[in-house]
Design a protein around this nucleic acid. Structure first.
Lengths: 288, 288
DNA sequence: CGGACACTGAAACAAATAGTTCAGAGTGGG
DNA sequence: CCCACTCTGAACTATTTGTTTCAGTGTCCG
């Protein structure tokens, strides 16, 4: 394929690029090749790097300068356009359509579409507001498969606001945790098929204590729904012996973003405090 | 049709144009819109007119100047290229396009598309084979954000085959775990930005001990790549203060499915054994 | 630790592009 | 045949774009 030469050039060169250059490279590949057709200034801005970085990179790729690079992009684009109409390409372009990468992705995209179509945005906003209310304590729980998702949600919420706890339904310690749960608090339950007994019991007890239960479950819906103030169903189908939690995670992340938007003023302070703590512990690298 | 506005603008304006302008117009329409994407000078040359003619004409068409005209062409081209796929309705049909649910999903789909386009299927299959090889012990590790993903992958792999361990990079117990790592074993490292020092150290030591290191990282690539036999980059952009791990999870699940396909005979037996154990512990509900 | 090295972007600089002016060529009507 | 009018491009100016230099910063390695 000569028509994709520059794209492949970018991909192949990527490992040898520096941090800023890789950032630029990613931007270029992101919506290839449109982002490269503007001026060097706008490309640099879009990628968040300086114009010298752009020049250095295209020279590293073998072009004499930015205009030469741009000309190559234009030529390829022209060849592509005048050529046969682009078919619906598979996701992993280099693999045949039946490759697992394509089949799995296809299935997950379908899950996303169907799940989103069913969600009531008003309900979603409602729950976001509930989770953003710092007057309420939050409890998050998940089962065998969903524990990691519960942890993921917990970790983010914990940074966003105070008063968040993770309650492992898989252990037998959860009745102790329930001692802290009071009227008006919120319990987020993850429960997907092979619905778990402990999840049901916990939700039942919690709703009796006056907690608002938010349930995140699959399309067949966990029996916890009976005790939940709000239920969200995510499609979890996949060409595998396992179910796919991708949509559940997408939902969690979106929820986190929504909560964060509502608490931003206070969250900002919490995050910068966290940042200082990280600096003090030197957990992270400063640069690549 | 808004997507062809400029082309139709040209066609409709043609009768009212002067000779030189019509010549220019014809050139533009001839291989629309490529001829308009170069500099004004080259367009003028190609059409055999002067640059003032070009400026006058685009102003006559209602653009403020040549750059504005060119920008319009680029935008149309972009819309045309990304094709009907990008033209989809909002994901959460009931919500306006600017609702976070739609914006977030949009962004994640973009991440998926771009990540998949970059993955080398051969490499993917290679790693799947590596993880399916029961002669090698497997170690999985992740950092602050990615720990949950590491756990998720671990949980699945553990069911699929024996000899899988989770090594928490966030604790200081990992050097102990390293005692068990030997030549030919595999270490799967998750490391996304705010790359962590422990991940790097662990990967370095592991590769020195003769382990194959598989790295799953973001588009900017963790420095662990230097010590990795195989690196996969996932786009993690999201309209949020946080990065999105959805694509990383998609990748993990696909990998799990691929490994499982290779070990299915033995995995089947393991899974039914697990089933019996579950029955014995009565963790799951028999019926909804 | 500390020196060598690599990466990055601000700023200065060079080159092209885009826009303007204006004189001359062409045209049509009186 | 001449005048008034429009159109056109050469030449100039202003602006933006592309390139180079250089100093600051962070990383690596002994």
């Amino acid at each position: 394929m000569t028509s994709q030469t520059t794209r492949e050039l970018l991909k192949r060169a990527e490992p040898d690029l520096t941090r800023a250059e890789r950032q630029l490279c990613a931007t270029l590949l992101h919506n290839y090749p449109m982002s490269g057709l503007g001026s060097i200034t706008r490309l640099a801005e879009k990628a968040g790097v300086s114009t010298p970085t752009v020049v250095r990179m295209v020279q590293k790729l073998g072009f004499s300068g930015f205009p030469a690079f741009q000309a190559a992009l234009r030529d390829e684009l022209e060849a592509q356009i005048s050529g046969p109409i682009a078919k619906h390409e598979s996701w992993a372009g280099q693999a045949p359509e039946e490759h697992l990468l394509n089949r799995f992705t296809e299935s997950v995209i379908g899950n996303i579409r169907q799940t989103l179509a069913q969600i009531d945005p008003a309900r979603f906003d409602e729950v976001a507001a509930l989770l953003a209310d710092e007057g309420r304590r939050l409890f998050v729980t998940g089962g065998r498969i969903t524990r990691t998702l519960a942890e993921y949600l917990f970790m983010h919420l914990q940074v966003i606001r105070p008063g968040v706890s993770l309650v492992p339904a898989t252990s037998n310690a959860w009745p102790h945790a329930m001692l802290d749960m009071g009227e008006g608090d919120v319990l987020v339950v993850f429960d997907v098929r092979r619905y778990e007994n402990t999840a049901l019991k916990m939700a039942k007890l919690a709703s009796k204590r006056g907690l608002k239960v938010v349930l995140i479950t699959d399309q067949w819906q966990s029996p916890v729904a009976k005790h939940a103030a709000c239920t969200f169903n995510c499609r979890i189908e996949a060409p595998s012996a396992w179910d796919s939690m991708v949509v559940v995670m997408l939902f969690c992340e979106t929820l986190v973003a929504a909560v964060e938007n509502r608490t931003w003023e206070r969250t900002k302070a919490r995050m910068s405090e966290l940042e200082e703590l990280f600096d003090a512990t030197r957990i992270f690298r400063k640069f690549v």
